[in-house]
């Protein structure tokens, strides 16, 4: 507990130093505010335009979360199909790597053309960028079950359904979480990229990506800063939410999530 206090205290200290450095930079080099606004100006504009900022944040959060959840559902289903047959896996696996390597910036305009601008298109861009890590990791988890364990279940005359539900799926869970963690990191990138191209389906209001473009065009640098911070916070929140669920699901039995309660055990 004491350690944790010292740790968060020193982190806060670094943050304060950063703010002071930022403020001094402007003072010493006399940087105009359209290039680098003061920390105070950023806070002021964030408070001033809070309803707008909050609305943008919610729109992007909706797209990021929707795309991520959809990619988990679809990714796990595809992984289940992959795990059932080596033949299918060998045939399709190269394409999941392709899915991972294709630059999202190049695909996003295509998706917008097909679906039309709006929240759905943004969600789909996010979905595409999140899908590959989920498929790859979950498939790995489903097929890497110890052969002896499969034989143990066979000795008990377990059905294929029982082997899936009581052996393969629980075994794949830590792998799935590795995938979701990676995807949660890129989900916000997906949402912002989508918004760059799709803008917003709603008049006058857009997500963070759209607002960033708009603020840039208007040279509202202070607000741009606020938007960047909001986007970062969104990514943070998403990542730590996933971490929390991972801890909830695995901390009792899995090594990766054990550290947190190692002091008690």
């Amino acid at each position: 507990m004491k350690k944790r206090l010292i740790f968060s205290g020193s982190a806060a200290l670094v943050f304060c130093c950063l703010l002071i450095f930022w403020r001094l930079l402007i003072l010493v080099f006399d940087i105009p505010s359209y290039l680098l606004p003061t920390p105070l100006a950023v806070v002021k504009v964030a408070i001033q335009r809070l309803p707008e900022l909050w609305a943008s944040l919610l729109i992007s959060a909706e797209a990021a979360l929707g795309g991520l959840v959809a990619s988990i559902v679809v990714g796990v289903l595809i992984a289940l199909i992959f795990a059932r047959s080596t033949w299918v896996r060998k045939m399709f696996f190269p394409y999941t790597i392709l899915l991972q390597t294709v630059p999202i910036l190049a695909v996003a305009p295509l998706i917008i053309i097909w679906i039309g601008p709006g929240l759905l298109a943004v969600g789909v861009v996010t979905f595409v960028i999140c899908l590959a890590p989920i498929i790859a990791n979950t498939t790995q988890g489903l097929v890497s079950v110890d052969e002896n364990l499969v034989q143990l279940f066979l000795m008990y005359n377990a059905s294929q359904g029982q082997i899936l539900a009581k052996l393969r799926l629980p075994h794949a869970l830590p792998y799935l979480f590795v995938g979701v963690r990676i995807s949660s990191g890129v989900a916000v990138i997906g949402a912002l990229t989508g918004e760059w191209f799709a803008g917003s389906g709603r008049a006058g209001q857009g997500g963070l990506g759209y607002s960033i473009l708009y603020a840039q065009a208007q040279l509202q640098t202070a607000y741009l800063f606020a938007l960047v911070i909001a986007a970062t916070l969104l990514g943070f929140t998403l990542f730590f939410t996933v971490m929390f669920f991972e801890w909830l699901a695995l901390h009792k039995w899995h090594e990766s999530a054990m550290n947190a309660d190692a002091t008690n055990g």
Binding site: D146, N148, L149, Q151, L152, L167, P170, K252, H254
Partner: peptide, 9 residues
Amino acid sequence: FQDATLLPW
């Protein structure tokens, strides 16, 4: 089996 092959979860 040689390993205990328990289900860790």
